[in-house]
Design a protein around this nucleic acid. Structure first.
Length: 507
RNA sequence: GGCCCGGUCGUCUAGUGGUUAGGAUGCCGCCCUUUCAAGGCGGAGGUCGCGGGUUCAAGUCCCGUCCGGGCUACCA
């Protein structure tokens, strides 16, 4: 069996993680079976269309490592791949005519106001809401003609058969039955001449020979309409795969209201695409057993519909953080540095970190420092980044964590100063260190360690803590950070002497 | 309200009639250690939503019930 799947977003906003997961499943299923992945843009809603959005869709997909064989950007045997263009090409009109002629669709001329009124009436009387006939489902041809002569703008609705059971065979949930009397007649063609999702998506899925329609669970309710349409047209429906929704920690379906769930926000926030993809794949799907750290290749190799789960999942940021840290630690030094520098230099990064929610972190400015250092002293900057690798959760962590390497006078944590610089032996310690380091070009890690250990021994300190901590505070302004000896060697004598001297003044 | 879907540690999940219900994350502790992490080891955390059945045996099958969610547009 040859698999043909499609990711069919509407360009009404940047893709968020729930949305992109279906794209991932499409991609993985196609790869697993050596099938074809199609990108189709469903831009039939002219009012909600956001210009530039298609670029975000393509960018999100590419960033996460997905590709497709047919789409608006690369054409294909079923082009065009934008529904607005397909509409222009007259692809949908023919089928509307067929439906109209067979009596499986009809024209309706209610105004939006009349429809709203009808809904209100249904609400008040606790009736099922929707269009179950109105005055037009059974209107005579002369009534329709009269309305058209008056120049009324009508829509075309599907005539859903009554008194029947419509069966949806879902790949995840199995057989789902609907009483067709509870299904209202959906609009197929809007008054502006554009097809609705119900018409366009089904026609395209059929014409493009899509074998599996992977879409969100929120579509289950309208699936019987789609099946009725397929039946009316005499087509065999594709396999429907309704994947569960992803919820926010509030238990509601993930949306833009949940903060940073736009896929493209994860990039400037310092997440690795391999981590995000791995993590998202595992919400609602499992390879079985205990596997969870998987590359895209492994994911594709393991992915089948069997592993899909019916119950919805919560997007757990903390677990994503862990996974992201894992992938950061897996990067080799060169690769890690490249990624951090690329992130630091990106305009997208400064835009993200200057947004209201993040501006107070100062990360934007710290990234600028990192960027500058990467240009002027690439070797030094690289070593600094590598020293922080074990401690990072996101790539954005490197900016604040490396900051002390890149500024002349790092900001001092007042609490750290109080705790470690007020000790009696500290002035002498700093002076001795300055003397030892003075005029030297460089020191090795081993030399730094010997320096401190010898001083401790000479002054009767059994533990290294009282020596190490004041020096760390003097050099970095903080009590936390990389191994002190490594950090000292990288900083070098010149920077150390300067900072020791500054610290000596307040000690 | 109506229609529909779902329900295993806080969270993501393994599990397809017989397991001390496993793993991961998060949390706690110990080890390592100059700090923080990372890493290693260990711990707490689940009456498998609840109640009935079927069966020698049920998280696994059936029914009911509760709770959660989705849809209810000339949006997708």
């Amino acid at each position: 069996m040859s698999v043909r799947v499609r990711y069919a977003p509407s360009p009404t906003g940047s893709p968020h993680v729930g949305n992109i997961r279906t794209a991932l499943y499409d991609f993985l299923l196609a790869r697993h079976f050596g099938g074809v992945n199609v990108l189709r843009i469903e831009d039939t809603d002219r009012a909600r269309l956001i210009p530039g959005c298609e670029d975000d869709i393509v960018e999100s997909l590419h960033w996460l490592g997905m590709d497709w064989q047919e789409g608006p950007d690369r054409g294909g045997p079923f082009a065009p791949y934008r529904q607005s263009e397909r509409k222009e090409a007259g692809i949908y009109d023919g089928w509307i005519q067929v439906l109209l002629e067979r009596g499986d669709a009809y024209k309706a001329f209610e105004t939006p106001e009349e429809l709203a009124e009808m809904r209100e009436y249904q609400q008040i009387n606790k009736l099922p809401e929707g269009y179950f006939g109105g005055v037009w489902r059974d209107a005579s041809p002369s009534q329709v003609e009269a309305a058209e002569r008056e120049g009324k703008q009508g829509v075309v609705r599907l005539r859903v058969p009554r008194g029947r059971t419509i069966v949806l065979q879902d790949a995840i949930r199995g057989r789902i039955e609907f009483d067709s009397d509870t299904i209202d007649d959906p609009v197929l063609l809007k008054a502006d001449g554009m097809p609705t999702y119900h018409l366009a998506a089904m026609v395209d899925d059929h014409l493009m020979e899509i074998t599996h329609v992977i879409r969100g669970e929120e579509w289950i309710a309208s699936a019987p309409k789609h099946i009725a349409l397929f039946e009316a047209l005499g087509w065999t429906p594709p396999e429907f795969v309704h994947v569960p929704v992803i919820k926010g920690t509030d238990g509601k379906k993930l949306s833009k209201r949940h903060g940073d769930t736009a896929v493209l926000d994860f990039r400037p926030a310092g997440y690795l695409p391999e981590a995000l993809a791995n993590f998202i794949a595992l919400i609602g799907w499992s390879p079985g057993g205990n596997r969870e750290l998987m590359s895209m290749d492994e994911l594709a190799e393991a992915f089948t519909l069997d592993g899909l789960q019916p119950s919805s999942g919560v997007f757990d940021r903390e677990k994503l953080d862990w996974m992201n840290g894992h992938y950061i630690r897996e990067l080799d030094s060169e690769g890690l540095f490249e990624r951090v520098v690329a992130l630091a230099a990106s305009p997208e990064t400064s835009e993200y970190w200057s947004r209201e929610d993040h501006a107070s972190t100062g990360v934007g400015l710290k990234f600028a420092h990192l960027s500058e250092a990467a240009r002027s002293e690439p070797e030094y900057a690289r070593e600094a980044v590598v020293l922080l690798r074990e401690r990072a959760t996101t790539l954005a962590d490197f900016a604040p964590a490396c900051e002390f390497f890149f500024v002349e006078d790092p900001s001092m944590d007042p609490k750290a100063v109080e705790k470690w610089l007020r000790l009696d032996h500290v002035p002498g310690l700093f002076e001795d260190m300055m003397t030892a380091l003075q005029g030297r070009d460089r020191v090795s890690v081993e030399e730094c360690e010997a320096l401190l250990r010898d001083w401790a021994a000479a002054h009767g300190f059994e533990k290294l803590g009282p020596i190490v901590h004041p020096i760390r505070v003097a050099l970095t302004g903080s009590t936390v950070g990389p191994g002190l000896f490594e950090l000292m060697a990288l900083l070098g004598p010149r920077r150390m002497c300067h900072r020791l001297q500054e610290a000596r003044k307040i000690a």
